[in-house]
């Protein structure tokens, strides 16, 4: 090859592939609104994005898998934890995690209530972006898999059979709804919400107890009520509630189909 030919190779290669890149960029712009639900970018979401940048969040956390690796990925965090929990957490992370135990702890940011709401709105919008199925299984902040949990090796999405219990268990492990992000099924492991190791037994005792004032009359009814209306009975615990209100998301009545609630209850009733 002569120098003239190699120079032509450089110019032509750069030109052709640069042009393809520009064309694909234009096409991507055509698709961004659908893929990112850009109609849901409200002023609160934009303000939340500014909070995200101002607080330098990306230099500890990843979002959409991009950022630093010092703190957990937050792509699906609002679906895993819910707004109530995140609000309480952002006000004082040290109530939820211990630097002695975890070796690192998020600094308490001086955020106003409004900034916290905006940040959560932003993260909630990010959680709905079409990420081509990433992450392939939920990335959990904490919990699961200390000895005794069956999350190890469990299929992330598909149920093993069409049995309601199997379907319920698969749903329990899936995000959304993200039950397993906060509830372990190992005895004594309280991740954020209480362990559900013997949920059916506890539920049966609770409906009989004098301080229960909800509408349920049996264990299955209590579990159903706890999913759909977490504030009907609030279990006490350091990370379970704040100001007498449960930190569990309270919108499962809207986001889950009745059939799915049945399956979850069927699964939880097997935990005795």
């Amino acid at each position: 090859m002569t120098k003239r030919q190699t120079r032509a190779f450089f110019y032509a290669g750069t030109g052709v592939f640069g042009a393809i890149f520009i064309a694909l960029t234009i096409d991507s712009h055509r698709q961004f609104p659908t893929l990112t639900h850009s109609d849901r970018i409200t002023p609160a979401v934009i303000a939340g994005k500014h909070v995200w940048h101002r607080q330098n969040c990306v230099n500890c956390h990843t979002l959409l898998g991009e950022g630093a690796y010092f703190a957990p990925d937050l792509t699906k965090i609002t679906q895993q934890r819910g707004a109530a929990y995140l609000k309480a957490f952002l006000k004082d992370p040290s109530k939820f995690y211990s630097e002695e135990r975890d070796r690192r702890l998020m600094p308490t940011l001086a955020l106003s209530d409004r900034e916290i709401d905006e940040l959560i709105a932003f993260l909630d919008w990010v959680g709905r972006i079409d990420t081509q199925g990433w992450p392939p299984r939920p990335i959990l902040v904490t919990g699961a898999a200390i000895p005794g949990t069956e999350a190890v090796g469990a299929p992330p999405r598909a149920a093993a059979s069409s049995d309601p219990v199997a379907l319920g268990e698969a749903l329990f492990r899936r995000t959304p709804p993200g039950c397993s992000a906060c509830h372990s099924t190992a005895p004594g492991v309280n991740v954020v919400g209480p362990s559900l190791a013997n949920a059916a037994t506890v539920a049966a005792q609770r409906v009989e107890s004098p301080d229960y004032h909800g509408k349920a009359t049996d264990a299955a009814g209590y579990l159903r009520e706890s999913i759909l209306d977490p504030n009907a009975y609030v279990v006490q615990g350091p990370t379970f509630s704040s100001g007498g209100r449960s930190l569990m998301p309270s919108d499962f009545a809207q986001t889950l189909e009745p059939r799915q609630v049945d399956e979850l209850v069927a699964y939880l009733m097997t935990l005795r």
Binding site: P72, R103, P136, R137, I139, V141, A145, I146, A151
Partner: peptide
């Protein structure tokens, strides 16, 4: 540990100290 097995982020970080 974290992505395939499904261990929590914080537990994983402890295990890779």
């Amino acid at each position: 540990l974290e992505r395939i097995i499904g261990l929590g982020y914080l537990e994983t970080q402890q295990k890779i100290q």
